[in-house]
Nucleic acid binder design. Sequence first.
RNA 1: GGGCCCGUAGUUCAAUGGAUAGAAUAGAAGCCUUCUAAGCUUUAGAUCUAGGUUCGAUUCCUAGCGGGCCUACCA
Length: 576
Amino acid sequence: MIISSLRDKIEEILEKEHGQLKKGVSVEIPPPNFGDFAINCHSLRKILGMDSSDSVMDVVEHLYNELKREEKKEEWLFHVTPEKHGYVSFFVDYYKLAFFVFKKINEEGDKYGLGNVGNGKKVMIEYPSQNTHKEFHIGHLRNVCIGNCLVELYKKSGFEVIPVNYLNDFGRHVVKCLWAIQKFHKDEEPSDNKQKWLGQVYAEAEEKLKDNEGAKEELDELQKKLEDHDPEIWELFKKTRDWSVEGFDRILAELGTKHEKVFFESDIKEKGQKIVDELLKKDIAKEGEGGAIIVDLEDDSLDIALIRKSSGAGVYMTSDLALAKEKFENYDVEESINITGNEQDFYFKQLFKILELYGFKPKMTHIGYGLVNLPSGKMSSRKGNVILYEDLRDQVMDKMLRETKKRHDDWDEEKIKNNAEKLTQAVLKFTMQKHESNKVVSFDFDEAVSFEGFSAPYILYVVARINSLLKKSKAESRKPKVNFSLLEEVEEKRLLLLIAEYPEIIKKALERYNPSTITKYCFDLAKAFNDYYNKYRITDAESEELVRMRMAVCGSVKFVLENALNLLSIETVEEM
RNA sequence: GGGCCCGUAGUUCAAUGGAUAGAAUAGAAGCCUUCUAAGCUUUAGAUCUAGGUUCGAUUCCUAGCGGGCCUACCA
């Protein structure tokens, strides 16, 4: 809010003065003790075409006066220092800033910090698009966390969001799994977690197929049968697919994901095959080596895309062509967003290009996030180094139960379990969103189950502390009659500036499809609070008035933290 | 071979081209008769190499080195 509006206003003033667009003024938050905001003088000189020896103080003086005049209605502003190290610094009037920020929070309530860039626009967000008959590992978890966060960000920025999933229940992986069941597990019925069992059988199939050249024909034949709905295999397919779907539903519900629609590849594949026929007719696609159907995208440096195998069977691309049409034709959305691992970046470029050639070009966005690797390397079911979501969750839960019990031996089982469950979800979700979403991350198990430092418990602990303060003081947070002139400690000012910065953070997270902006912000705010808490008394400060003012600051920290965590689909706990 | 991504403390990560490169963790030393120690304080520690653009480069460009991913019958 503050930085961006400051920059916008400065550019607006410059534009008015100098007649043309003057973009690129650098407005920054300086290091400690260098003021609250600073304008970079070099950037100012550059856009005004001034020499590096020219003084900018006249311009700054003018900007300052204009800003002050403009800001009168918002009533927070500053004094200004001479140029030093290439910067002029501004100091904020905290009394007025506090008044301004609290007023804003009171007026906007839960909408504080959220814009309306969506303006009612309808978007579809597809994630995590996992495969049936395979395991659900922590890579899928990252996808779900990023997806959940984007859905929230879009919703709260004024978009109408339709979250959907697309289950790939008809590809080669299914064939491999069914093949292994028929061959090695005929008539076996897993007892409890059937979804997990299927994942294990799939991994076994990969293992067995590794040095079994002859099996390719068996698989081809099985795939053909499957695509022809041959009763011999169809029964088994339906049954096992349901096992997978039920298992996934349980996991997604646990993670707080609510899909409005689930597409199945098996329902869509035939439509995709029809599009392939059309592409052939239009001469966009052609027959390639061995009779497979391809689209030559060499002219666009996108190599060659395979859209139908020589056996006549479809590939992923076959169905994805139809899925894209389905989305826009049946749901009337303006944009379709797809979240997958970024190893599919190239695949999606090909897909969008083919659709464009086909004459279908609504707005489609692919967001690729970095894979989750283990210290030992890439997760691979063949090598047996995969961390399943459910296994990780159970271990974190174990630890959270132990830690909670240790600290609260007076709580009953129910309460302990409840708290540990919330903490577990918080830990998992926070961990998966700590890093910039487009970067490959290396997953460290010990770090993931830890509860120190840059982690969910650190943040939730702050909220619990504030809850305790609120209980103790019985003072209402954000109560109007607060004397902000008592606000004088640097730690209080830091908290205030961070709270004022929140809208800016949300904006950035949305622009960059990057939840880590929010996790990092939560940590910064929580840390700033702990600094403050350890240094000053709050419920028994010197005066009644001071208690009220400090409680108001605490209340708004809790308010902003809870809202930010909400965007990460993390729930807080009352005590911990 | 071609394309995309990445290279920052021992480790895992930050830093719209700007002031003193921030955190976390592991290491060393401290703080609970005081609002929740899942906390706080102090300390030590880093930009792959060589050029270029710039008043200024971790950031942009070129080359090299190192790693990951994709590249027509895997997804």
